[in-house]
């Protein structure tokens, strides 16, 4: 075996993937804009629910994008830009869902939601990932690796594509994907989902 080959690979990895500067899009939405995003998210979500009878899941990616369509012309949102707006909406979505999951955990539901129709194939999988635990693991990740923390928030709660994130973070898609792969593995391990074989 020739160990230097791998040493070279390591060096290349470092040079290629750690950017000198990092774009920061961590700013909070202005409070009133957050309120409006929140209201709008809820309105659209409820609309989908009513239209649908009672689907088991909502397409949150679509939600976040719809909110953008609805609000991007608003004066205080105009200056932000699409990708940035989406990232902030993703954060709002994270807060909303994790808060709701916590509340639901406190209330301690009396049995699973009964789901009607042909659609609840994934209802069982709801239980597989605990959003509160995910949130905590994500916070731990962000403490170690801020960029990866952002990425996960946008991707998991906002449904942003790798390409959109690459644009936001001013990185190549390849780098974002590498970040994503590591972050994913980190979360799977933190959530204890890797213990048993699939």
């Amino acid at each position: 075996m020739a160990p230097w080959r791998y040493a070279i690979k390591c060096a290349a990895t470092n040079a290629d993937e750690v950017p000198a500067t990092m774009t920061r899009v961590t700013g909070e939405l202005p409070q009133d804009l957050f309120e409006r995003v929140y209201q709008e998210l809820r309105r659209i979500a409820r609309g989908q629910r009513h239209a649908a009878g009672s689907p088991v899941t909502l397409d949150t990616t679509a939600l976040v994008h719809e909110v953008y369509l609805k609000l991007h012309d608003a004066p205080d949102a105009k200056s932000i830009g699409r990708a940035h707006f989406l990232s902030l909406a993703a954060r709002a979505m994270r807060q909303i869902l994790v808060d709701h999951a916590r509340a639901r955990g406190r209330i301690k539901r009396g049995g699973d939601a009964i789901v009607t129709g042909l659609n609840d194939r994934v209802a069982g999988a709801d239980d597989v990932v605990d959003l509160v635990a995910l949130d905590a693991a994500l916070t731990r990740l962000a403490a170690l690796d801020e960029r990866a923390g952002q990425l996960v928030e946008w991707r998991i709660f906002g449904g942003l594509e790798i390409a959109e994130i690459a644009q936001l973070q001013e990185l190549t898609e390849r780098t974002v994907f590498r970040d994503w792969r590591r972050a994913r593995a980190f979360l799977v391990r933190e959530l204890g989902l890797a213990d048993t074989q699939a």
Binding site: V56, L58, A101, D127, V129, L131, L134, R184, L187, A194
Partner: peptide, 29 residues
């Protein structure tokens, strides 16, 4: 440990998707 987790990562993504969607539906309700 990370490599072992990586093998399960696709599953995780799928489950995280539905967890999010399910919670959103619940929230909307």
């Amino acid at each position: 440990a990370l490599l072992a987790a990586d093998i399960r990562a696709n599953t995780f993504e799928h489950y995280a998707d539905s967890a999010r969607g399910g919670m959103a539906a619940d929230w909307a309700d």
